[in-house]
Nucleic acid binder design. Sequence first.
DNA 1: TACAACTGAATGAATGCTCATTCGGTGGAC
DNA 2: GTCCACCGAATGAGCATTCATTCAGTTGTA
Lengths: 215, 215
Amino acid sequence: MKDDPQIPVKPNGDSVLAVPRNADKYQRILDAAVSVFAEKGFFNSRVSDIADRADVADGTVYLYFKNKDEILKTAINTAFDGFMRQARTQLEKLADPADRLRRLAFLHLDALGSNRNLAVVFQMELRQSTRFLSEFSHHHMIEYLRLVRTAIGDGQASGFFRREMSDKVVANCFFGALDEMVTSWVLSEHEYRLSGMADAVVDIFLNGMRVARTP
Amino acid sequence: MKDDPQIPVKPNGDSVLAVPRNADKYQRILDAAVSVFAEKGFFNSRVSDIADRADVADGTVYLYFKNKDEILKTAINTAFDGFMRQARTQLEKLADPADRLRRLAFLHLDALGSNRNLAVVFQMELRQSTRFLSEFSHHHMIEYLRLVRTAIGDGQASGFFRREMSDKVVANCFFGALDEMVTSWVLSEHEYRLSGMADAVVDIFLNGMRVARTP
DNA sequence: TACAACTGAATGAATGCTCATTCGGTGGAC
DNA sequence: GTCCACCGAATGAGCATTCATTCAGTTGTA
């Protein structure tokens, strides 16, 4: 996510040509938007706020993005795509399902934990986006959950994980737990490294809370 | 939540007197609002939409609520208060921490699972509310988490739960998992009884995913 | 019982403001 | 001189909120 190249190919969604290709300005607007959205929320953000923060005229924003919605959509999509690419690359190297879950949890928390503004946008705006940007979030969510479900399914197949649990339910809980860790971090006054929580979360899922167990 | 008496004492937050007390109309506006918010999201909902759906004139809405924000705030607060009252009453009767968690999970999923509109408002609007109605939701969240943390702490104290886990982290994960079950249910095309998932979720937290264990 | 005076809940058209978006013009690069 | 990225003031649609007016119901009087 953070080391994504971000080349502005076809910045303005529909008009393929006749669009400025100043990568720097494109990126500045996108960053400014994330920062403004994080601060005031999508609906309370003015396009002129974004333009101001990007040091660009109001009209210039529309040379790079079709409209305000498209800015949010692009920001979220770009970030999510980067994350998923990274996650897939790293997870396919790991054979042990438990390791895969551990790594995914780390990547999830690290991606958002290293960019608070992005984290705020994801935690606060993404849900309501589910309505007006529904296609997107539905598609991406399913991709993410597939990674988790595959790990769980593999673990069950090889007898490491209990077979009576629904991989679907566990995957949802797993995501929900991480998601809540992010929300909690975003709202917290305290400073702490979010990715440092990954192991604790995964441990709960692997071992549960009960004491009685054989090692 | 569903069996709450809902007596409209002091409907309009600040003007204590000189306010209509038509309980039916008050409730109709509130219900209409939840239904409209659920359908279009808070920011895309028009006060006139709410008035229409409540079969009331636009101006009448303002006899019962100070403004649009206040309607959402009231809806959320009323529902949450009802839920917390119910939860506290029921949990204090249960000694076993595991039973308490089971019951809480059930109540959580049942409360939202029996009112889809309310569930949508909670899942979609509550987060962004965290910004513009922050005092509220933060306070409530803490109350809820206290119930979970207490159960976990008790379980640890009596040696049923592992002591090395942070009750705070587990509580957040627990809430996050349930929250995600609700979101997933809200977005799902399929019809299923949400509260039926409670035991599966709690089971993950109590027993974890790994196979090796003593019963 | 009949009627006038009064009350205040309810109405909905009018107001006024807040932006997203547009577009005619500017200036720098080549 | 031409082109085009960029500018930012102007536009106008959309919408929360207000308030002058209506009228159903209640009280008081004879």
